[in-house]
Structure formats: structure tokens, C-alpha cells
């Protein structure tokens, strides 16, 4: 059984490669600064932000968290199986990963639909401007992640381990961003 060995302890070769980790660092800093700005702004009118936050459905948020976490677990399993050259099983788990992402998007669409129907659009107030921009950019990342996973689905056997790991790292980055967004936007303001 062939198992590929990469020296992850090397500074230049974190799992997925240095470029994806530079991207992840920049993304986390960007979303992190935007969330800090949101909390700073909430101090100007705490009651408005608190009441606006209560208009969000935290059950949807928690369910979406679970969808992404389970999807991330399947992605990690896909990478393990790929490294063992078990392509059929890896392909199966890659499908499950994508289903997790699609479920996230379906629930998000449902949530957005209700917000729009209730008139809680991007210019409703400052909180909802942040809500739409931050969750909207996150959704774009999930969509890009799904495109990458779809490409992997059709080219799995030809892929290099580093390529799959880089794609997996991007997918996990969507989890990480959501793990910052969910508590700040849906729970603590």
C-alpha cells in the first residue's frame, strides 16, 4: 500500500502548502477585523444591535454550523482515504462533503428569503449591513469551495496530494470563518 509522505514540519509545507495558508491567514484577518468593527459599532447603539440580532434565527445558525462541521469531517476523511489511494471510498466521502455544503446553502437561502420577505435588507440598519456583507461573502467562499470540490470529484485519480490538501484547507477555512461569524453575529451582541 502506497502512502505519500510530505514533511509537514517544514515551514514551507504546512498541510495544503504555504500559499493556501497565507490565503487563510489573510481571510481570517479580514473577517476578524470586520467582526471587531461590528462589535465596536454596536457600542454606539447597543439596544438597536441587540434587537436586530434577536431578529436572526439562531437555530438556523446552529444547524448550519453542524452542516459545515460534519462536511469538514467528511473532507478530512476524504484526504485520509486519498492518501491511502482508496479512490472509490475517497470519492464517496467527497460526495458527502459536497452534500454538507449544499445543505448549508439551502438553509442559508431559506434564511435570506425570510429576511428579504420581512424587509430586513442590507440598508435596513447598520447591523443588517454587516450581517448581509459578512454572511454574503462567506456564502461566496462556500460556493467557490463547492466549485473546487466538484473539480476534484471529476479529477480525483489524477490529483496530487498537495492539490487535494490545498482544496481541503480552503473548505475547512469556510468552517473556520463561520466559527467566527456565528457566535458574534447570532449569539453575543
Amino acid at each position: 500500500m502506497k502512502t505519500e509522505q510530505i514533511d509537514y514540519k517544514n515551514f514551507y509545507y504546512p498541510p495544503g502548502g504555504i500559499l493556501i495558508w497565507i490565503l487563510i491567514t489573510v481571510e481570517l484577518l479580514t473577517f476578524g477585523m470586520a467582526l471587531i468593527a461590528l462589535v465596536f459599532m454596536s457600542k454606539e447603539d447597543p439596544e438597536l444591535f441587540h434587537k436586530s440580532r434577536l431578529l436572526l434565527n439562531s437555530t438556523f445558525g446552529a444547524t448550519n454550523t453542524i452542516f459545515l462541521l460534519v462536511s469538514g469531517f467528511f473532507m478530512a476523511t476524504t484526504v485520509h482515504l486519498f492518501k491511502k489511494r482508496k479512490f472509490d471510498k475517497a470519492s464517496f466521502y467527497l460526495n458527502l462533503t459536497m452534500i454538507g455544503g449544499v445543505l448549508f446553502l439551502i438553509l442559508k437561502t431559506f434564511e435570506y428569503y425570510h429576511k428579504i420577505e420581512s424587509g430586513l435588507v442590507i440598508d435596513y440598519n447598520t447591523f443588517f449591513t454587516f450581517y448581509w456583507l459578512l454572511t454574503g461573502f462567506h456564502v461566496i467562499h462556500v460556493l467557490v469551495g463547492l466549485v473546487i470540490l466538484t473539480y476534484f470529484k471529476f479529477t480525483l485519480k489524477k490529483l496530487e496530494t498537495e492539490d487535494l490538501e490545498a482544496g481541503a484547507a480552503f473548505w475547512h477555512m469556510c468552517d473556520l470563518i463561520w466559527l467566527l461569524l456565528f457566535p458574534v453575529i447570532y449569539l453575543i451582541l
Binding site: Y8, P14, P15, A76, H172, D175, L176, L180
Partner: peptide, 17 residues
């Protein structure tokens, strides 16, 4: 804690530099 768990276990950051 969830953030660390995802990064270190699923993303295998524990193996990194």
C-alpha cells in the same frame, strides 16, 4: 475551542511547523 479543533485535527495543523 471549536476553531482550534477544526484547525488542528481536520486541517492537520498539529503536524505543521
Amino acid at each position: 475551542i471549536k476553531f482550534i479543533a477544526v484547525a488542528f485535527q481536520f486541517m492537520e495543523l498539529g503536524k505543521a511547523h
